[in-house]
Design a binder for these strands. Structure first.
Lengths: 279, 279
DNA sequence: GGATGGTGTGAACACCGTGTTATCCGCACA
DNA sequence: TGTGCGGATAACACGGTGTTCACACCATCC
């Protein structure tokens, strides 16, 4: 009855565009029997980083709840006569779940009925998968707009705590007193801990536009960050330079002559990582 | 260019997009030229107790804002080539406004484009007015549903009390004498105590539409609020500026003239802030 | 080991963001 | 039609912030 989610290799921490818009991958379930249609839809779903799950029949509502879906597409023809009752049941039990009916020929009365029952949209088959995806996006967008602001995850690294809701980083209760740009920079770096980020990529994602040739802004801001990190959290190194490439964020205690086990582990990890990256 | 609303009694207070929208009669505007279509639609709109307003062209966005609409139906054919730019403009300025494109023959690409721009639905003409109304209902339902339950708890912060039922804030029995906007602003801020809110987000939620670039309204109103807070509750600081970001509401007693060290103040501030935020 | 080019560092400077005040406009009310 | 209020807009001052530059330093390559 159920199939594992396809697609959706969850990237560690990727914000496609604006620094503030974080969207968890949408979980989409489709009740449909047309394998060709499912395939072309999945292609587009995957392209958006969503996850697609195919349901072959009327899955009990309790199971739907457990799936934590972001949207549901139903072909009423697959379910036959009980399809309407099922639609009603689902919409009643999960009013927050966006539901799109995507099925064959229909009458105005049927479409109106589905919409009144609680469906968000009705798209007649045959249809273009791109339109289906666009309609799903529109509905989800409408729902998210009124929803409470998404809670941004707090990042922890070494001694510091990065609070997106405060636009600030802390060491214990003490603020690092970062400016907006500095904060965006450290959030980007810490959000991709262990990865080497190129200057151009950093600039593109923090500043929002392409870096001019010869621009040293990233270097200067890294210096400011290091300075404030050193001041608030001495004994730790966070930002590492990769010559000719860019920077890598990785909290490492500045171990004295006595090396602890943790330090060794970290060193090993970063060493192997460095090898991989630099080749 | 404009026509008076037909049907429906004008409600004294309506908050179409403000965060406290009750089920006030929906204000619907239609950009369309087909009088026959308008008539049959209006019949159904009236039957639901909504208000319908007919627009004969691309009304400036500022006027749309003033109309406090609950939904907008557009026939792109009426507007001609600039219709697309207008659609984009409206959707950008009023993301909370449900927009349905209801127009003649179209291609998949056009429909997808409209939906991506920000339209909520596309319904091809000729269409049944009942379906149009049902689709409007579905979209409005989705928007309302995602919104958190209308809760208006009395907020306490420092010396002040915010009473949503009075649309006013008090210090003991004395009113701060806030205007409507000032009240909405302090309610939003105090409702997110400890969180830094960006200007754009504040504007979006208090004014109901997107903030124009360079608009200083939020700053001016924050100043007015600070002034009234200072007048009624000296010895407390409530609204804190976060340079390059926005504002944060957090009641903090202005400690006496004894301590003049910035570091101490900062430590106290962040410590108390952290406590409150973490709860 | 020298040459070359990338990076760290500090400071000067221009610009942008914010506080503040004043003015204008639209609207409700008398 | 006049008056008062609320809100939008503009203008100015000032301080924080970002950019740019110069120079020192260091890694890499030959």
């Amino acid at each position: 009855m159920k199939t594992a989610y396809t697609a959706g290799a969850t990237s560690p921490q990727d914000e496609s565009h604006a620094p503030g818009s974080r969207t968890a991958p949408l979980r989409l379930a489709i009740v449909d029997g047309d394998s060709g249609f499912l395939q072309v839809v999945e292609k587009r779903v995957r392209a958006r980083g969503w996850q697609q799950r195919v349901l072959t029949g009327a899955v009990p509502v309790e199971e739907l709840v457990g799936m934590r879906l972001g949207a549901l597409v139903i072909d009423l023809a697959v379910l036959g006569a009980p399809g309407w009752a099922y639609l009603e049941q689902v919409c009643a039990a999960l009013p927050a779940l966006p539901v799109i009916v995507c099925t064959g020929p229909s009458t105005v009365a049927q479409r109106v009925r589905a919409l009144r029952i609680g469906a968000d949209d009705w798209l007649g088959k045959p249809c273009h998968p791109e339109e289906l995806v666009a309609r799903i996006e529109a509905i989800v967008r409408r729902g998210r707009l009124a929803a409470p602001p998404v809670e941004r995850p707090v990042l922890e690294a070494g001694e510091i705590t990065i609070r997106p809701d405060q636009f600030q980083a802390f060491v214990g209760p003490r603020s690092l007193d970062l400016t907006r740009r500095e904060f965006e920079l450290i959030r980007l770096l810490a959000g991709n801990t262990g990865q080497v980020l190129e200057r151009e990529a950093i600039y593109q994602r923090v500043w929002g536009y392409a870096m001019a040739h010869g621009d040293r802004s990233v270097d200067v801001f890294v210096r400011k960050l290091r300075q404030k990190l050193e001041r608030s959290s001495p004994g730790w190194r966070y930002i590492h330079t990769h010559f000719g490439v860019g920077y890598r964020f990785a909290p490492e205690p500045v171990d004295g002559p006595s090396s602890s086990v943790d330090a060794l582990d970290l060193d090993d990890a970063t060493a192997s990582l460095r090898e991989r990256v630099l080749q």
